[in-house]
Design a protein around this nucleic acid. Structure first.
Lengths: 193, 193
DNA sequence: GGCTGGGAATCGACCGGTCTGTCTAGAGGT
DNA sequence: ACCTCTAGACAGACCGGTCGATTCCCAGCC
């Protein structure tokens, strides 16, 4: 029961913080949606900031699962997997998708500067994500899909950062244009066979 | 006198919203720093949101001035100008710089989804910026620095979005690494002679 | 089995403070 | 006299967080 309450709070909090932002989401709002009294919240989490860290961790776990599923599918060629992966991300986090925007990116711009709790977590999340992409690129090199002179680590970092930039721009424009452009340049220029 | 008060509010608001964010900056905080009473604020601006729009406009004017200065310097080759321009941006908005982060990017992730006042402005700001970069790329093509098959418009869009992504990542890492990587890939891969 | 002690978890009233925005009064220039 | 602008007290909602009371569960003992 205790765990269920905690899980319920994180689940509701993830949705709210992701869509409305950290600052714009009040603890009371989460409590009302989760139908949990305030005392329980502060029993499970010492502060809103630590709660956000738990929410971010859960988001990271979900995203790890996603890339493991798609990027780990050995039935597809590495670059094909990568393309499917980003196409999936667009359908989920693009303007036409159900949520729009990346929680990591949102939290980074909102509070990474000011929170010593969340900033290292964000850094770690981006690092793990970048590593997963780099691994796919390494496999692409090994399989002859990608020029051996390519630097998978730097390339992966650049691509991941570019994705965040495209997502940001797509919010400003309220259109997936920037995301499609990202896809085009990434696979036709940066990762061209 | 009236204009001076208004200007003072915008100036202080720009600094505060840029560094702390829109939600985290209170009207009272701005008033205290600007030494202006609340009545004056709501005389000049109907709401905090409209005030933020004025702040964004001022930021846009400042940035327009910056790129006109650097990208418009015909004494340098177009690509050289562009590189100087981004190097300047890194020194100003990078982690080692005085402010860190782009107001447009910050506002976009924080409220573009929820504000119909700011979202079109942000879209417009990004568009104007992208156009300035595209113009430099067009001049690079005309001058033979860049392959004529390049599409200056799309390339400029991609580069601008990538810049925002790199800036975001630099916040998560509290390091300029992503910005240097952006510079490298942009000029060695995307805009290679 | 029945009893009990005690920590875990729940619950919501309550706290001081802060939020954006309003209102009325008056200062100052023309 | 008029109108723009200054001035700040005030409103009412909401903020994150605290606190003490209560319920629940279950291990340990008889």
């Amino acid at each position: 029961m205790a765990q269920k309450t905690r899980e319920q709070l994180i689940e509701v909090g993830l949705k709210q913080i992701h869509t409305a932002g950290y600052g714009a989401t009040g603890v009371n709002e989460i409590l009302a949606l989760a139908e949990v009294p305030k005392g329980s919240f502060y029993h499970h989490f010492p502060s809103k900031e630590v709660f956000a860290a738990a929410v971010l961790q859960r988001y990271g776990e979900g995203e790890t699962h996603r890339w493991e599923m798609i990027l780990g599918d050995k039935n597809q060629a590495p670059l094909k997997r990568l393309r499917l992966y980003f196409e999936d991300l667009i359908s989920v986090y693009g303007q036409t998708g159900p949520i729009s925007g990346c929680l990591m990116g949102n939290l980074t711009l909102e509070i990474a500067d000011h929170s010593d709790v969340l900033q290292p977590m964000l850094k770690g999340c981006f690092g793990a994500w970048e590593d997963a992409v780099a691994e796919a690129l390494r496999e692409a090199v090994a399989g002859g899909e990608l020029d051996p002179s390519a630097n998978p680590g730097e390339l992966a970092s650049f691509i991941v950062n570019n994705w965040e930039g495209a997502l940001l721009r797509s919010k400003a424009e309220r259109s997936d244009r920037a995301l499609e452009l990202f896809l085009d340049f990434t696979f036709k220029v940066l990762l061209k066979g």
